[in-house]
């Protein structure tokens, strides 16, 4: 049976009605209309649905919407400031870090959480963390380059 759930996404409040079985990923896409979060495997392997919950990246297909109530959720829609892209988004363009783009929202949210950390990840940590998401087009090299460049750019601002 549907129940009322209140989600805080990108500092906006969404009052939705959803069944308890609704995953956060489905709630974001179907009930909040935020289709920037993509769903690939729907069982926690591909990372396409990665969002940030209370500061930590999580797979939105492995979390119920009802569990996300009262927590601060960030999705790819919250990265750009109006028409100005987030430095990480710009870096993805500059470094040709996407081709088909299906995995990109997940990579952006994963990488955002990494480069915003107080201690930025070293190269090994970066590789370990980025290997948790799947990209079938780019071969990862350009994604790593983009994240590394954005990490530096963010710190120089």
């Amino acid at each position: 049976m549907k129940q009322p759930i209140t989600l805080q996404v990108n500092q906006n409040t969404y009052d939705i009605e959803a069944e308890p079985r609704r995953t956060l990923a489905d709630a974001l896409r179907e009930d909040c209309g935020l289709t920037g979060t993509h769903l690939g495997c729907e069982h926690g392997v591909c990372g396409a649905c990665t969002v940030i919950v209370d500061g930590d990246p999580m797979r939105a297909c492995l979390m119920f919407a009802v569990q996300a109530e009262g927590r601060a959720i960030r999705t790819v829609e919250g990265l750009a400031a109006g028409a100005t892209l987030h430095p990480l988004q710009q870096a993805f363009i500059d470094h040709h870090a996407l081709q088909c783009g299906f995995c990109t929202a997940g990579f952006l949210m994963l990488a955002t959480s990494l480069i915003e950390r107080a201690d930025p990840p070293d190269d090994q940590e970066l590789l370990d963390a980025l290997s948790s998401n799947l990209c079938r087009c780019t071969g990862y090299k350009n994604i790593v380059n983009a994240v590394r460049a954005a990490s530096v750019a963010l710190r120089q601002r």
Binding site: R21, H43, C61, L62
Partner: peptide
Amino acid sequence: GGQSLMPTLAFRLATPALLIDLA
């Protein structure tokens, strides 16, 4: 955490009537 349980549910390998969240 649900990180093994939710894939199990997604594959319908388990179909519990109730989930009891320990959070």
